[in-house]
Amino acid sequence: MSTLSGMLTRISDTLWRKPNLLILLLILPPALWLGIIYLGSLFALLAQSFFSIDEFSGVIKYELTLKTYGELFRPSNFDIIVRTVVMAIAVTIGAAIIGFPVAYFAARYARGKWKALFYLGVMMPLWSSYLVKVYSWKLILAKEGILNWMFETLRLGWLLDAYLSIPIIGGNSLSVSATGTFLVFLYVWLPFMILPIQASLERVPHTMLEASGDLGARPYQTFRHVLLPLALPGVIAGSIFTFSLTLGDYIIPQIVGSSRRFIGQAVYAYQGTAGNIPLAAAFAVVPIILMALYLWIAKRQGAFDAL
């Protein structure tokens, strides 16, 4: 036996006799990588949110203070937070409404080839390029684009104009309105809502729905009192994605939307040209806290027990 293979055998024997050593060796590289690079950076960021910036010199003062967090509650900043949360809620509700029939059909009725088609039909948009998806909506919503053309061709241009004249959700054109931002968010995050709903619906036995019908429930009643409660954990799991992703995004509202900013854009602006890293850090903490709160409520509602 050559010395090399002898050595390998000895190492191998040691690892077999001491499984804990093996586990340690296996886990050490990923734990170090994620622990140092990721958690380290995360804590560095959190720490910076407790510093503040000198208003006159623009230099960061390295003293612990809550002043930066106080600035979040200034009306202009607080508006950004409220706007983002409202958008996240709207996107979540919209995604649940559009996603549910797709998930339900895929879970309950699609078989064989259709099942594969539905699966790929959700996976493809989920994994295809984020920027390309956003770009496609820039094409759709442009003034000379397909959506306006459709409205004009159907002679419904006046309807679109009337809609766009509504304050807050309207604007000069769809591509610079809050409605446009909403549509793009909805489009980009929709697959994240469908997959968990479908997973939860796959587990609902046929027989339960039939029993409900046999006991005299109308289809709507079966849906409302049997199917929906059973699918709710899936909806909540999906809403965690849509909510969190909307809270943190800064590219979509920058490309399609009005000049009114969202949390992500505020973070980006404060850390970039403004050079106010503490305030950017404090803004970045907002989605973390909101998500923690959201998960905590979801847990208290028992959403995870059913998952």
């Binding site: 990923p30 950076s41 995360l42 560095a44 960021l45 992703l245 973070v267 989605p287």
Partner: peptide, 21 residues
Amino acid sequence: LLVILPIALPGIITGISLRSA
């Protein structure tokens, strides 16, 4: 949890953390 965290938290948080680090 540690493995999932970088993708569970919004990308901007991962990004800005790394940048400031």
